[in-house]
Computed example of a mutant assay.
Amino acid sequence: MTVHPLQLVGGMTLSAIPDMAKVVFAHGLTSTFRDGFVPLVRNVRAFRLAAQEVKDAGTALDMILDTRAMAMADITDDFGRHTMLERGLTAFSSKFNLVSLMAPWNATLKQFSGLLTMTNMLRASQRVAAGKGTAKDIRNLASSGIDADLARRISMEFSIYGDSQDGILLAKAGDWDDAGAREAFRVAVVREVDRTIVTPGQDKPLWMSTEVGKLVSQFKSFAMSSMQKTMLAGLQQRDAATVNGMILALGLGAVTYWAKETIANRETSEDPAVWAVEALDWSGLVGWAMDANGVLEKATRGKVGLSYFTGQPVSRYQTRNVAGAFLGPTVGLTADMFQVSGAVAAGDFKQSDLRTARRLLPIQNLFYARTLFDRVEAATGDALGLPDATNRKD
Results as ranks from 00 to 15, higher is better:
Met337Lys: 05
Thr371Ala: 10
Ala343Pro: 05
Glu377Ser: 14
Asp353Lys: 09
Leu372Gln: 09
Gly328Leu: 01
Ala346Asp: 05
Ala343Met: 08
Ala345Ser: 11
Leu360Tyr: 00
Arg375Ile: 10
Leu327Pro: 12
Phe338Met: 05
Thr356Gly: 01
Phe326Pro: 07
Phe367Trp: 11
Thr380Ile: 09
Phe326Leu: 12
Val344Arg: 06
Thr334Pro: 00
Leu366Thr: 13
Gln364Cys: 15
Ile363Trp: 08
Phe326Arg: 15
Leu384Ser: 10
Asp382Ala: 12
Ala346Ser: 11
Glu377Gln: 13
Asp336Trp: 00
Leu333Ser: 07
Thr356His: 02
Asp388Lys: 14
Leu354Val: 04
Arg358Trp: 01
Pro387Leu: 13
Thr334Leu: 10
Thr380Leu: 14
Phe349Asn: 06
Gly328Thr: 05
Gln364Arg: 06
Gly332Ile: 05
Ala335Thr: 11
Val331Glu: 05
Ala379Leu: 08
Leu354Trp: 07
Met337Arg: 05
Leu372Pro: 12
Ser341Thr: 14
Asp382Gly: 09
Phe373His: 14
Asp374Ser: 10
Lys350Glu: 11
Ala369Ser: 09
Asp336Tyr: 01
Leu361Glu: 05
Gly332Ala: 00
Val376Thr: 11
Val331Gln: 00
Val376Tyr: 10
Gly381Lys: 13
Ser341Lys: 06
Pro387Glu: 15
Gln339Asn: 10
Ala323Cys: 07
Ala383Thr: 14
Phe326Thr: 02
Phe326Ser: 03
Ala383Asp: 10
Gly342Met: 06
Leu360Met: 07
Leu354Cys: 04
Thr319Ile: 02
Val331Leu: 06
Met337Phe: 07
Phe338Gln: 08
Ala383Met: 13
Met337Leu: 15
Pro362Lys: 07
Ala323Arg: 04
Ala369Tyr: 07
Gly385Ser: 14
Ala383Trp: 12
Ala379Ser: 11
Leu360Glu: 00
Lys350Met: 13
Asp374Ile: 12
Arg355Ile: 06
Ala346Asn: 02
Arg355Ala: 10
Arg359Phe: 07
Gly347Trp: 11
Ala343Val: 01
Arg359Met: 09
Ala357Cys: 01
Ala323Phe: 02
Leu384Tyr: 10
Leu333Gly: 14
Val340Asp: 03
Gly324Tyr: 03
Gly381Pro: 08
Val331Ala: 10
Thr319Lys: 01
Ala323Lys: 08
Ala345Cys: 09
Ala379Phe: 03
